[in-house]
Design a protein around this nucleic acid. Structure first.
Lengths: 245, 245
DNA sequence: TCGTTGAATATGTATGAACATATAGACATA
DNA sequence: TATGTCTATATGTTCATACATATTCAACGA
């Protein structure tokens, strides 16, 4: 079997290895090709089955597993592609995670709010060194994949940071701050842990209450200007990088 | 449908909801029963299909998903049961750590093992590009504070890495590899997510079953020599940087 | 121009059948 | 007693087939 003159794959009907496993391996190899990584439709199920001399059911048995792993995305009426926003590959470079997501799948809203009315108000007051009545800008961002929302960000900006509304929140926050406010922002503190989703989080991330969620805190500051923002990120819906069994 | 006088379940053939999804829900309910939680065999596929008036394939389509989620375990020739442990059943066999370093709060033990016998064997075989019969070195480490164990590491070394037994595992792994093997090791891949502690993990980390645990994967490689090791880290007991409410 | 229709296409759902194979237990044998 | 064999059972694999449904896009018509 070959597609567009690529490497030739074969199925061994006499092998002790089940056909669907052979197909699975074959597909894992096939989708390494850049064209598929870039979104090209895989050969459709019927054609693939015919070319390999097996039934469509067997092909589906193989692709089912890859779809479960979220390596592939099947779309009715269209076809099957490599999951472009494959969370596993994205998380390979966690730091640049937000950078690579692009504009797609990003929603946000921001508004002024009294410190007293936000979560973690004490911590924020302490870090920002402001009073309970002070107003901060709260920014909520939701980032998603084909499979749904994945990361929920909450950022609080120091009162001195006046947002214009034209900021580009699809970029990492500190990039934006640097460009917009000509500061020398740097990540001063980072914490990471696992928590359980509460009602609000579960709604945002479209997961069940009690599902495990990755929680990350990042403080962006300017050594000269003082603290600028605190960002909380909640990440659900992540496949185990290694499927344990 | 009912089993042993339990709650009656029904399949609606006229419903807009696909049969296999109805069966899936039905099974999720069914296995909440203590008897199934305790290991009782589920009704076998053929009987279940017959009782529900659907085909065996449709039943399998439903159970496939639950098996993939590791909620169910199917055993050829035996039957299907609720999975006892989520992370790995093989953790059961693990004996207590034999070696204890002088370094406070660090225990470890390492031994050769066939790939086929480890968790995540498929992924490891794929990453290391080795056969099922290959032997890898498995290293378990437990790192703790005064308050108890905090991080539980599992590392697998590529067969080409022959451990002498004199390695210093109290240092970061890639440091050790660099010093010992004069490689130019670097972290090539990192995945991170949140999972729920199962029985074995909870025992290792001395937390409750169901507590959220931070899961991290790290692959250390030498650009010249290739992949060197894969490390899984399970971290519990982390204080939230910001106490959420 | 804009909206509708319909065909082509690809995946989604579901059935029924057949044979393979691992497991446990009953039974027979050395 | 220990071992080997047979058998019933349940899952594993694979096939052929049929129809449902979402998507795209081109052709058509107001």
């Amino acid at each position: 079997m070959s597609f567009e003159g690529m490497k030739v794959f074969n199925i061994d009907h006499g092998s002790a290895i089940p056909l669907h496993l052979q197909v699975e391996d074959l597909l894992r190899e096939l989708i390494k090709n850049p064209e598929y990584q870039e979104g090209k439709l895989l050969p459709n199920e019927v054609a693939l089955a015919k070319q390999l001399g097996i039934s469509r059911n067997t092909v589906r048995q193989a692709t089912n597993k890859l779809v479960f792993e979220r390596l592939l995305v099947r779309k009715k009426g269209v076809g099957t592609t490599v999951a472009k926003d494959n969370i596993t590959t994205k998380l390979d470079k966690w730091s640049s995670f937000t950078h690579e997501m692009g504009e797609k799948g990003v929603t946000f809203r921001n508004y002024e709010i009294e410190v007293a009315q936000v979560e973690a108000d004490e911590e924020i007051r302490r870090l920002f060194n402001i009073t309970r009545k002070s107003k901060v800008v709260k920014l909520e961002r939701l980032r998603g994949l084909d499979t749904g929302p994945v990361v929920y960000f909450i950022s609080y900006f120091h009162p001195r940071v006046g947002l214009t509304g034209k900021e580009d929140f699809t970029q990492p926050l500190y990039d934006m701050l640097e460009r917009t406010y000509h500061t020398v922002a740097s990540v001063s503190k980072e914490g990471i842990s696992a928590i359980l989703a509460d009602k609000e989080l579960s709604k945002k991330l479209e997961i069940a209450v009690g599902d495990p969620v990755l929680f990350r805190k990042r403080v962006v500051c300017d050594p000269g200007a003082g603290l600028l923002s605190i960002t909380l990120a909640f990440t659900g819906q992540i496949n185990l990088p290694i499927p344990l069994r």
